[in-house]
């Protein structure tokens, strides 16, 4: 339990260290969801998941380098598990952004007004 409490505090302190960036990103995402609220469709979920999956794969290969490490430094399963966890987190964020974007961009066009 202590380790969970510690990890929660680490996450909060990391968030603090980025200043307003995280609240701004969160506000942008909420704004995106608000703009797309009438266009949200379950049928867009698979596409969003695919983009999230792509994000996961990209993160899996990019995260070690971003952190000055490499795939060759994965010593045992805890390292792989950790990398997979962070990659999935990135993928989940990718999905969360892709979903309202896809719904908004692929919304059905209103029927054009007919004069005849």
């Amino acid at each position: 339990m202590y380790e969970i409490w510690l990890m929660l505090n680490i996450v909060v302190e990391i968030a603090w260290s980025y200043g307003p960036l995280i609240p701004v990103c969160l506000a942008a995402w909420i704004g995106l969801m608000w703009m797309a609220r009438r266009d949200l469709r379950l049928s867009r979920v698979p596409q969003a998941l695919i983009l999230g999956g792509v994000t996961t794969v990209l993160a899996f290969f990019a995260l070690p380098g971003i952190n000055l490490s490499s795939l060759s430094d994965m010593g045992y399963w805890v390292d792989w598990f950790n990398l997979a966890g962070w990659s999935l987190t990135a993928g989940a964020m990718g999905t969360a952004v892709a979903y309202p974007l896809l719904c908004r961009l692929q919304r059905p066009m209103p029927p054009s007004a007919s004069t005849g």
Partner: peptide
């Protein structure tokens, strides 16, 4: 030795 220990040192211990 591995990535997890490194990530702790590099990213997480100062927030802790």
């Amino acid at each position: 030795a591995g990535f997890f220990g490194w990530l702790l040192k590099y990213r997480m211990l100062k927030p802790a």
